[in-house]
Design a binder for these strands. Structure first.
Lengths: 119, 119
DNA sequence: CAAACATCTGAACAACTGCTCACATGTTAG
DNA sequence: CTAACATGTGAGCAGTTGTTCAGATGTTTG
């Protein structure tokens, strides 16, 4: 990110140095965009429920649909989103496709969020 | 959440016990909704940038706007969202309002997300 | 009080999201 | 191969979201 050229308001509230430091340590726009995209994936009740359902065990699409009381199609659409964000992984066994959490990050991120919600 | 009554697909992929356990340990719908709402707040580039800008120091609205190169109005709207989710806190000093991260949860949640993005 | 300044807010609009529906794909059993 | 089943996918639609614009609120100074 480039340092802004104009000061419309009279002063930089803290020290200009601090502000420059903030800018220096701020990740690039692309990274911040990716980060927002990641959280966006967690930002939907249906997807959160799916992830929670997979906390204990891997499940097939149909079971998730029943578990959450939503359409199989809706689940499939959301699993696609979750998979492309590498939050879940798929394993095919015959006609059935089993989904599971991709790694422990998912658990940790959700746990941190839950801490805030329950606080 | 109530246990689903009908099985459209022939079997519960793992053990029925496991599925029941998942349901038993799954937080209530309200909690899951709140959790999704929280992540939704993180799921926007502008808000993520604002939070990151506040990582090092408290800043006033005008400075944030300059720092990120966006309208003061847009910043104000987003700060409102961040504040009502208790992610930032405000402190008034004369005409100026300083914003800062509400607590360490915010840092931790973002850090966890960043881990996943950079992985 | 009036003027200047920083911030907040409501309305309106364009862009995006998640669901449903219909159908496509892929796999197994007969 | 065909039928049955589990899952995947594209189009369309209703609801939501973030921005801009104009103006309101609140604070300090003179």
């Amino acid at each position: 990110m480039e340092f802004p050229e104009i000061e419309r308001c009279g002063f930089l509230c803290v020290h200009e140095d601090t502000v420059k430091q903030v800018l220096a340590e701020m990740p690039g726009d692309e990274t911040l965009y990716d980060l927002a995209e990641l959280f966006k994936v967690f930002g939907d009740s249906t997807r959160i429920k799916i992830l929670y359902a997979l906390f204990e065990a891997e499940l097939c699409v149909c079971d998730i649909a029943q578990l959450l009381g939503i359409t199989q199609s809706a689940v499939s659409h959301q699993l696609r989103v979750l998979k492309s964000s590498r939050l879940v992984k798929a394993r095919r066994d015959g006609k059935t496709v089993f989904y599971a959490l991709a790694d422990d990050h998912v658990r940790k991120i959700i746990a941190q969020g839950m801490d805030h919600v329950l606080e």
